[in-house]
Design a protein around this nucleic acid. Sequence first.
DNA 1: AATGAATGAGAATTCATTCAT
DNA 2: TATGAATGAATTCTCATTCAT
Lengths: 218, 218, 218, 218
Amino acid sequence: MFEKLSEEKKTEILETGIAEFAQNGVDRANINVIAKKAGISVGVLYKYYTDKETFFLACLKRSLDVLTTVLQEQITSDDKLLVRTGKIIRAVQKTSREHTNYIRMYNEITSGGSRKYAPLLAEKIECLSSTVYTQFIAEAAEKGDIRDDIEPRMFAFFFDNLLMMLQFSYSCDYYRERFKVYCGETTVDNDELVASQLTKFLESAFTFRSSDVKHQEK
Amino acid sequence: MFEKLSEEKKTEILETGIAEFAQNGVDRANINVIAKKAGISVGVLYKYYTDKETFFLACLKRSLDVLTTVLQEQITSDDKLLVRTGKIIRAVQKTSREHTNYIRMYNEITSGGSRKYAPLLAEKIECLSSTVYTQFIAEAAEKGDIRDDIEPRMFAFFFDNLLMMLQFSYSCDYYRERFKVYCGETTVDNDELVASQLTKFLESAFTFRSSDVKHQEK
Amino acid sequence: MFEKLSEEKKTEILETGIAEFAQNGVDRANINVIAKKAGISVGVLYKYYTDKETFFLACLKRSLDVLTTVLQEQITSDDKLLVRTGKIIRAVQKTSREHTNYIRMYNEITSGGSRKYAPLLAEKIECLSSTVYTQFIAEAAEKGDIRDDIEPRMFAFFFDNLLMMLQFSYSCDYYRERFKVYCGETTVDNDELVASQLTKFLESAFTFRSSDVKHQEK
Amino acid sequence: MFEKLSEEKKTEILETGIAEFAQNGVDRANINVIAKKAGISVGVLYKYYTDKETFFLACLKRSLDVLTTVLQEQITSDDKLLVRTGKIIRAVQKTSREHTNYIRMYNEITSGGSRKYAPLLAEKIECLSSTVYTQFIAEAAEKGDIRDDIEPRMFAFFFDNLLMMLQFSYSCDYYRERFKVYCGETTVDNDELVASQLTKFLESAFTFRSSDVKHQEK
DNA sequence: AATGAATGAGAATTCATTCAT
DNA sequence: TATGAATGAATTCTCATTCAT
């Protein structure tokens, strides 16, 4: 398997698949078209991937692997919470611009009725970020850098929700339009503004002091 | 159009379509199956909707209309920001449980490659919530109930991002699994816990006082 | 199902399938070609038969049903054994000439590696003839019309083997050639000769008297 | 041709082909699989056999050659008719058990629509047995060992029909099931019983005396 | 106007055959 | 000369859409 296919060719095929799937969705993408665009015959494609689903999964895996690697790099940091947060946000922006299609692939599995195996692949990335975020939030809570009356896991969840939406807002058509509706045409391309605003939002979400509270629901 | 079809029949057809599309996605849903389940002939369906895409759009429109109406109700409130926030969160939870399929339809357009016209339909709901959220955040800022160093529009954007993710986390398979990965199996069904945690998160995001800042990135 | 398709059309489709399958074998026959020849679209064919195998089975069933009916008629006779034998042989010849394709379909399942369900369909015809032949041979044995030192079932088996080979020799290309090799070009079309010779052969096979035996294997 | 391929390798390739063709039928057998199982490349296979059909024919030829050789040995006998008949039957049983795949190959050409050249190959075996059987039946008739009112050629034909069916009944799935339906599960493995019963059947078919006839069709 | 049977273009997949290495 | 990766024509099957009744 893959003895003759060079690593580059292999990658090219997957990238072509990713581009098509990201563009049209799994169901509308056409295997014969992908093969042609990748400069190979359908036969080769079917030699390496038993069927369309399997090929899609391989494309998805590659996408998630790249994203996971990028995520790993972002995460490895000894900075304090807020510095780290800022870095992560900027990294998300960068990733979204550079790896649009990977993120669209990721987005592809978040909808789509009966796609069975795809979500399994995503477990890795979700587990990774959930573990990492939860842990550094818990650590920050211990150090007193962060309010301690929210469950770290849930905090991490809300945190990642914001990051995920940010990713999609840069990469996926629908979310991008919505982004514009909310923030205006220009803001979408003003990365620094968005980054600083979101950092502030998260900063205050993290550092609320209960002593300050005056108007709280019981 | 619809001269002969009673309002109830019309609704039944759309609801059947919504159920199928929500279940299987646009591409995998089968028009003939939908017609059969709705108790009509494909002929009728094609009389009123020129093609599958158009019918999907009609189903989507209905879904968004219902969600918009529900949203309107949630939004109309004179309560203070935090009370209102809590109410909205709970309303989102309720909606997610009661109108799963509508939300799945909404989710359906957030991905799905080349679906061209679908996003246009969603403008209404996005504009509505963006306007409303932006406005009440601006008002709160004026009253001093909220920090004033974040753009209301962006604030509203982050706010809605969290709500949208919450909706999907309750209604859509992939997001639901992710929800569990982050927060644990039981949390997913503990609406009160989730609501209170998210309220806290938003509360502090909203009410940060710049005077308190000690550890901020420059 | 078949509400709109008239009985004649239904039959025409099956007969077209039978002709093609008989001509080319299951694997080489082409569903699109069959549909075209039958004057329908593939869609219709697939509406009534879930796949090629199922359609082949339906064609086979029809073939075997016709053959079974014909067999039934042949069998229903109160004649004495030998008279009956002669009638059956002539009936087999007639059937073979008139229903060549049905017999080829029958022949189709006698080879063909992994064809799974086809043989099940044939059980009916095999059971029928085995039961009938076995029974009338047993009766003849009781009456003393036939030697009684051969198991009726095995006798019936040998009897049917000869009839089956006769059928195939008239209907199937290979067997037909072989028939010529053995008996000469002209004999193949001289039904009366073949019938009388086979009758004689069977007659003596049936009526051997043990008292006559002089040179028998121990 | 075959300059480099050793005789053993050649044989191994053919035997592999025979096994696959016997198992799956010509159409369903896969050339690439056969090459792999034979431990050669498809390239080699196509060097020696121009196409699948040609290769199948070569496999068929080998099968028929082996069967012809075996047949030759069975036939070469100076025994009297009935002794010889018994020997042939037992030889057929033995061959059927030992060379199942060759017989299946043989069976493969008896059906299968448009296989054009295959039957030509079989002429040899059919001519051989027809000649031999016809001749020894004629001789027996001269000696008075056999009734003389049946054409030797037709006699030989009926005789071989029974042997052929016996072969298939032991080797080919469909015929085997039919064998069981007629004679019961256990008989199929009781070679001695079958041999003696068929011998008796043939014995009386051969030795009928016209003087005994009382109830004959005119 | 309603029906749903019929259509047939389109897509996935297979595998005999070729040919660069 | 041998290899087996690559080819792509051919085939099965699906389903959006049409249209005769």
